[in-house]
Structures are given as C-alpha cells and as structure tokens.
Design a protein around this nucleic acid. Sequence first.
RNA 1: CCGCAGGUGGCAGAACGGUUGAUGCAACAGACUGUAAAUCUGUGCCAAGUAGGUUCGACUCCUACCCUGCGGA
Length: 338
Amino acid sequence: MKVLVILGPTATGKTDIALHLARKLNGELVACDSRQVYVGLDIGTGKMPGRQNPKYAIRNTNNNSNFEICASDLSKHNGYWMMDGIKIWMYDVTDPKKQYDVAQYIRGTTKVINDISNKGKLPIIVGGSGLYLKGILQGFSTLGFPINKQLRKSLEGFSLKVLQSKLKKLSREKWQGLNNSDKNNPRRLIRAIELENLPRRSPYGHLRGVTPANVLKIGLKASREMLNQRIDARVLSRMDQGMVEETEQLHKDGLSISRMRELGLEYGVLADYLEGNIDKEQLVKMMQIKIHRYAKRQMTWFNKEKDVRWFDISRAGWQEKVAKLALYWYNNGVTSNK
RNA sequence: CCGCAGGUGGCAGAACGGUUGAUGCAACAGACUGUAAAUCUGUGCCAAGUAGGUUCGACUCCUACCCUGCGGA
C-alpha cells in the first residue's frame, strides 16, 4: 500500500498542495488533526483551505445557525467533506462536546485509509499533529490498554507530589524510566499509574496503525518569521470569516466554556473573549501568539521525523517540485534521487 | 495651572535601606506511546524616567525636572 504524507507546521499550505496532488494522483485526503475531527469547528480549525482562494470564502446563511461554504462544490458529510470533487476524511467525525483522543483517531483513520486504498485510490495524509501521524504510521505499544475513567476521576484532584509518590510506589522502575519533563506532568503521571494498575499486562497492548509498505513524506517548512506572518494574517482572515460568530453559535448549542478551553488555541482564547475577560484586539493578539507557539512545538516534533523530504515554501516553484517528486514516486514506487 | 497616584526586563507586575530585584506572559531550546492545537521541562534576560541630595550603603528616603493616569480649575 502506498501512502503519501504531507506534514509541517500550521499555515504552510499543506491542505492546498494536498488537494492539488489529490487531483493529479487520484487521491483522497485524510486530515491528521486533533480538532478538525469535531463537527462545527470549521473556521477555527481551518477546515476550509485556500486563504488566498476567494471561492472558498464563506457566508452566513439565514436559514439556521450554520455556515455554508461558497466553494464551487463543497459539501459536508458525516466523517468527510467533499471539496471540488476531492474527499477529505476525518473531518466531522465526532461531537465537540465529547473528548476524542489518539486511540480513536488511529482506529478511525486506519479504516478510512484502508478503504481508500482498496478503492484503488491514493490516501494522502495531511498532518499537523505529530502524535496522531505517528499513531497511524507506527501505532503505539500501550494504546491498546483502555483508559480507566473511574481511576482518572479519583486521581484528578491530587497534587503533583502525591501522583509522583503513587507511581513510585506502584513501580519504581516505571518512575525512573520517565524523563524530567514527564515526571512533572500530571497527565502523564496519571496515565502511567493507569497502566500500572492494569490487572496484568496483556499482549494486546499494541494499537497498530496502517503500517503501509511505501510512504512518501513531504514536509513543508518556512522561516519562523515568515510562518509567524502567515499565521497573523490567517488569524485576521478567520476573524473576517466569522470565527467569533461560529464559536458563539457553538456555545449557544451547548459547547461549554470549559470545554472550549480544553480545545485549546483559538478556542481557549475565544472562551476568554466570550466571557468578557478580553476585548477583540487582545483576542486577535493572543490567538496569534498562541499559534506561533504551537507552530514552534510542531517544528520541534517534526524535526525528529525520519525520511522527510522537506520543501521551503518561501522558495519559488516549490509546488512544482513537490508535484514532480510525488508523481515520480507514485508511478515508480521510489523517489528518483537519493 | 492645582491636587492625587505612579514611572521596575519585550510586556504585565511584586517585595525590600544592605552583595539587590519574585512571579506571570512573551522569547529561545527541548520532551512527548489514550485530553497532543493538550500537557510538561530547561534557559537567558547587561530591568528601576532624568539630574542632584541624604546615607557607610539606595530601586527603596528627600528635592527638582520630564513623562503617564485620574480628579479639579
């Protein structure tokens, strides 16, 4: 099975190039993003690509709360969108009020990718989320062990120190295996305790992704400065598109402020805005800053990713180069040089 | 013009007459196996409006000036 991956930090134009390649290579897109999976988080998670493409501008329809997109043909479906004849999977697969996680994503995506492949089409994974991407491509050895809601709930209130000593008591070895960062990370400690609480390690702990035979990873990058500029512009553009209104509507439909905070980035800041803690100017500024940081973390993650063919989007003609490389790989199963 | 309050790192914002100078945010670097656009770790910041004075010693006290905010005329 061949799988094409487009990865890189936010605002590098992954989806645009992916759509382009999908047309050329008879492909379908698979979004690899932790928030685009949620129904209704459209503008804020950037489900509509083509900032520079006016035909994707959206307008507010009067009939009900939702927005409609003015693409030549864009339709939303359960679990995928159809954009100008190209399917984008893993959009709208769950309710934003519910928590979603890597394990669900891996299960869902594995099926989607296999289906695409079985139809004779090329799955094109568009990835900004490093963990999710790794999950699909390699799987994770402990993800088969389910979460223990009760245990988590009982652990929730404890201080860092207590969590640490609990883990130490359960398994000195496990504790010592953690790095300094994780030792101070309540979430990781809780998960570690959860795993140590399992009755017995079963051999079914490994959650496997698709493990395709042939992957081409194309990475998009840009200088920090350029990236920040693009991010800033995009935040402004999303404001114009009605991100605030979209979020207000979600809130009216029952998305709580605290849940918005969990969803992070724009939505965390928007929560503050809706509560009246900050004004519009601060809202924009803070969203930009948060996303700068996010892009940085993405780069930290992707820098370790192996076998990536990187392209600098500030260089003229990079799209053609990408297309050429992808086409060659698609036809020959290997990349031409190196 | 008068009165009051205040001028501390990129920003916000503490404490303190004694080798000064917290914290948060941002910045930079990093981690990452069921919330990952989440969560966490590390690092540095040649920071006290200006000019004087008091003092063994001043960011801290005093004076003048400059600037900002609020109130009054």
